[in-house]
Structure formats: C-alpha cells, structure tokens
C-alpha cells in the first residue's frame, strides 16, 4: 500500500510537469490552430535562462525564475512573429513540421548553452525530503504540485475573468469572427506563445529542480505530447488530466512493471506514455475531452 501511495505521489508530481507543458501546447493549438512541437526546445532554453540568472549572475532563485519566464515569453513572441505569422492560413501539417524544425534549432542551442555538466538551478529544495506517515516525498515534488496548482489556477482565472482572456476564448472558437468583432487576433497569437513559453520554463525549472539541469530533460519533455493528445488537443482540462495520466502511468510502470510484466524489458516507463496514447486514441479518436471534428465536403 505504501509503495502504491508512494508511486501515486511521484506520478502526480511528474504528471503536473507534463500537464504544464501540455497546457502550453493546448493554449497555442486552441488560439492559433498551430500544433507546436517546439515546447521541449522552449523548455530547455527556458531552464537555461533560469540557470544563468541564478547561478551565473547569482540572483535570488525566485527572481531568476521570474526573469527566466519573462525572457522565455519574449522569445516565444519573437518566434511567433518571425516564423509562425508568415504561415497563417497554410496547412496545419506544414506548420507542425515547421515547429519541429524550430525545435531542432532551439534544442541544439539550448544544449550548447547548458553544456555537458549538470547545472544547478540554485533552488531552495535540493534533495531534501519530507516524511508524511510512511511516505517519503521529496520537497521539490511538493513544490511542483503546489506551483502547478497555483499557475493553472491563475491561468484559468485569466481566461475566465480578464478582458484579454475573453478575447483569447473568442479567438479559439472562430478566428475570423473574432477578427470581425475587433479582437486583436495577432496579439492573441503572440500572447498564446508567450504563455506557452513561460509554462515551458516553469516546467523546465521543476524538471531540473533538485538534481540539476542536464541536457537529458529534453527527452522527457517530449512525453508531454502524448499527454496533450490523451486529454484532447483542444481541451485545457484535458491537458492537465492527460499530464496526470501519463505521469501516473509512468510512476506505476516504474514501481510494478519489472515485477509483473518483466517481459516488456527495462525502462518500459519511457515508452508507456505512447502505449497509453495508442489505446486512448483507438477508443476515443479525439482524446478524452477533445472536440469531435465535424467533417464537411
């Protein structure tokens, strides 16, 4: 039982990170109908900025995170303006492939900046643990969950109550109609990319917290894609649910698969997200909360 609870807590913590990345993905997709494969590249770059501000410039950790998020958001806006804007109206596939190309460039630059050694974020949690009953939970996992709840809550409030959030929701429903109503659709695209880049940075901080940032975090970030698909590409709650499903599936695989399904081989946890995605899509072709596409000739 303890093992199960332990795995659940770990799963929720990783799931929260996937959820944040998937959320950025969904926000871009909803507002501009662009499928962005660049999230992992943005995350690596974002994590580097935080490392740079906190350990190279020796700033306070929280200030470093804030500056990192802002800088990432700026980069997100720049990318949208320079590369995605010319592609408005082009087939979704071309744009998706473009973001893959962009991701390659971003990842290489991020790796080059981070270098081969492990870079410390200077976060206050380190590798300390908290004991709750028999459970041993690392502090950074608690911080991850708390921070994710706050960030997601703030975002939902932004979409729900602010004037610009309303504009973004309107754009998500229909771009042309929104434009006709005087909504600055171009600015909505830019803000969507800024939010996504900021979320990616926060996810990168929590992936790198404790153990430190290495070039390897990029590989894990890719698993936010199946998370977004499982939840449904155009559903904000779906992104969170999908993230949690992937996180939990991975944690349970780590805990139990060697014992019960040993024939699947070691490190099956790296592939389990895709297996789950396969089965979810076979049953629900548009993800759990995704909107069914209406097909017209």
């Amino acid at each position: 039982m303890t093992e199960f609870l332990q795995a659940t807590v770990n799963g929720i913590a990783t799931g929260a990170i996937y959820g944040l990345l998937a959320l950025g993905f969904v926000i871009i997709y909803k507002s501009s109908e662009v499928l962005s494969f660049a999230q992992s590249g943005l995350m690596i770059l974002g994590a580097f900025w935080v490392v740079y501000f906190s350990s190279v410039l020796a700033l306070n950790f929280w200030l470093a995170v804030l500056l990192g998020v802002l800088l990432s958001a700026l980069i997100g806006v720049a990318i949208e303006r320079s590369m995605l804007r010319p592609m408005v109206g082009k087939p979704a596939f071309s744009v998706a492939i473009l973001t893959i190309g962009l991701n390659i460039a971003l990842t290489v630059i991020g790796f080059d900046l981070i270098g081969v050694e492990i870079r410390s974020l200077g976060d206050p949690w380190g590798i300390q643990k908290v004991e709750i009953g028999q459970l041993v939970v690392s502090q950074k996992d608690v911080a991850t969950i708390v921070a994710s709840v706050i960030v997601v809550g703030a975002l939902l409030a932004f979409f729900r109550y602010s004037r610009f959030g309303l504009a973004m929701r309107a754009t998500a429903i229909d771009q042309e109609t929104a434009l006709a109503q005087g909504i600055p659709v171009a600015r909505v695209f830019a803000v969507a990319w800024a939010i996504a880049a900021g979320l990616a940075t926060i996810a990168g901080v929590f992936l790198g917290a404790g153990t430190g940032v290495t070039a390897a975090i990029g590989v894990r970030a890719i698993r936010a894609l199946p998370a977004a698909v499982i939840g449904g590409l155009d559903s904000i709650p779906g992104a969170i649910v999908g993230g949690l499903i992937v996180g939990l599936a991975e944690a349970y695989t780590v805990a139990y698969q060697a014992e019960y399904l040993g024939f699947l081989g070691q490190n099956f946890s790296t592939a389990v997200a895709y297996v789950v995605m396969f089965f979810v899509l076979l049953v629900r072709p548009y993800g759990i909360f995704g909107t069914r596409e209406v097909v017209r000739v």
């Binding site: 499928l35 979704a92 596939f93 998706a96 894609l225 199946p226 698909v229 590409l233 895709y274 297996v275 995605m277 396969f278 899509l281 072709p285 548009y286 993800g287 596409e293």
Partner: peptide, 12 residues
C-alpha cells in the same frame, strides 16, 4: 484517425 492525431500515433 485523421490528420494531426495520426501524426501523433505514428510518433508514438
């Protein structure tokens, strides 16, 4: 599956 969802399955 259609379009982008297919892309994801083949990615998986």
């Amino acid at each position: 599956l259609r379009g982008l969802y297919l892309a994801f399955v083949t990615l998986g």
